Amino acid sequence: MIECFKDNAAYVLVMERLPHVTDLNDFLNDRGSLSEDDCRGIVHQLANALLRCHENEIVHRDIKLENILINPHTHDVTLIDFGCGTKLTVIPELQLSGTRVYYPPEWYTEGCYFGDRLDIWGLGIVLYMMVEGRRPFNNEEEIVNCKVYHSLDRKFSKSYRSLIKGLLHKDQEKRPTLEDILAHPWLCHYMQEPRVRRGLFSSLFKRFRR
């Protein structure tokens, strides 16, 4: 992110145009599903990026494959499109835009949600689609039932199944925090340094919150 400012109607974020990248949806369409090992690095980066956002009281609210850019050679990822983003609050949100197949069950059952837990839900959808090559849910009924089924033609680690179960938990209060995710057995051995520029995010989000 290069700059941010506020006009009369909205916050405006100016983000760098990255070379040699594609969105994660196109990347998966070309490559098919990814191995758990390939996904660990991607999820590690995304969890760290969301953690920096939440620490600065910003929620994204539209985590999906199309809003994640990936370098197909290095697997560096960048979270983009904060058009649905808003301030993190301690009261439930009553409005939701974004993409319907990524909506959480509490939106349909309660008509409200917490932004940070929505981001966790979106991360779970993204992880499932990367590893298993399909959506976990296709419609409102499946989202509300919240039954997660794994592909039968592949073997998945117990730690992956455990993480997905938590990320896509029907009860938003029982979803893991980002700190929990980064400490989860599926990720905790992934010791690569976060690729988020902490100082840049901190200074820009301070101005974003004014």
Rank of each mutant, 00 (worst) to 15 (best):
Met1Tyr: 01
Met1Phe: 02
Ile2Met: 10
Ile2Lys: 04
Ile2Phe: 07
Asp7Lys: 00
Ala9His: 10
Ala10Cys: 07
Ala10Leu: 03
Tyr11Arg: 14
Val12Arg: 05
Leu13Cys: 08
Leu13Asn: 08
Met15His: 03
His20Trp: 11
Thr22Lys: 00
Leu24Arg: 01
Leu24Glu: 02
Asn25Tyr: 15
Asn25Glu: 14
Asn25His: 15
Asp26Trp: 05
Leu28Arg: 00
Asp30Gln: 06
Asp30Glu: 07
Gly32Phe: 11
Gly32Met: 10
Asp37Ile: 13
Cys39Ala: 08
Val43Arg: 05
Gln45Glu: 11
Asn48Ser: 12
Ala49Gly: 15
Cys53Asp: 13
His54Val: 06
Glu55Phe: 01
His60Glu: 02
Asp62Ser: 11
Ile63Lys: 00
Lys64Pro: 07
Leu65His: 08
Glu66Cys: 02
Ile70Asn: 06
Asn71Lys: 05
Asn71Cys: 08
Pro72Asp: 02
Thr74Cys: 07
His75Gly: 08
His75Val: 13
Val77Lys: 04
Thr78Asn: 09
Asp81Trp: 07
Gly83Ile: 13
Gly85Cys: 02
Leu88Asp: 03
Leu88Arg: 09
Ile91Tyr: 12
Pro92Cys: 06
Gln95Ala: 14
Gln95Leu: 11
Leu96Ile: 15
Tyr108Gly: 00
Cys112Phe: 08
Cys112Ile: 00
Tyr113Arg: 00
Tyr113Gln: 01
Gly115Asp: 01
Gly115Thr: 03
Arg117Thr: 15
Leu118Tyr: 08
Leu118Ser: 07
Asp119Ile: 07
Asp119Trp: 06
Gly124Pro: 01
Ile125Asn: 01
Ile125Gly: 00
Val126Leu: 06
Val126Ser: 03
Leu127Gly: 06
Val131Ala: 04
Glu132Pro: 00
Glu132Ser: 04
Gly133Ser: 10
Arg135Ile: 05
Pro136Met: 05
Asn138Trp: 02
Asn138Ser: 07
Asn139Arg: 00
Ile143Arg: 01
Val144Ile: 15
Asn145Ala: 13
Val148Gln: 10
Val148Ala: 11
Tyr149Trp: 15
His150Ala: 11
Ser151Cys: 13
Asp153Thr: 07
Arg154Thr: 01
Arg154Cys: 04
Phe156Val: 05
Ser157Pro: 04
Lys158Glu: 14
Lys158Asn: 11
Tyr160Thr: 04
Tyr160Cys: 04
Arg161Phe: 06
Arg161Lys: 14
Ser162His: 12
Ile164Pro: 01
Leu167Arg: 02
Leu167Asn: 02
Lys170Arg: 15
Asp171His: 14
Gln172Lys: 15
Gln172Ile: 04
Glu173Gly: 10
Lys174Met: 14
Arg175Asn: 06
Thr177Pro: 11
Thr177Glu: 02
Thr177Gly: 07
Glu179Lys: 14
Asp180Leu: 07
Leu182Cys: 08
Pro185Ser: 06
Trp186Arg: 00
Cys188Glu: 10
Tyr190Leu: 05
Met191Arg: 14
Gln192Asn: 14
Glu193Tyr: 13
Pro194His: 09
Arg197Phe: 13
Arg197Gln: 15
Arg198Glu: 13
Leu200Phe: 10
Leu204Trp: 07
Leu204His: 09
Lys206Tyr: 09
Arg207Asp: 01
Phe208Ser: 00
Arg209Ile: 06
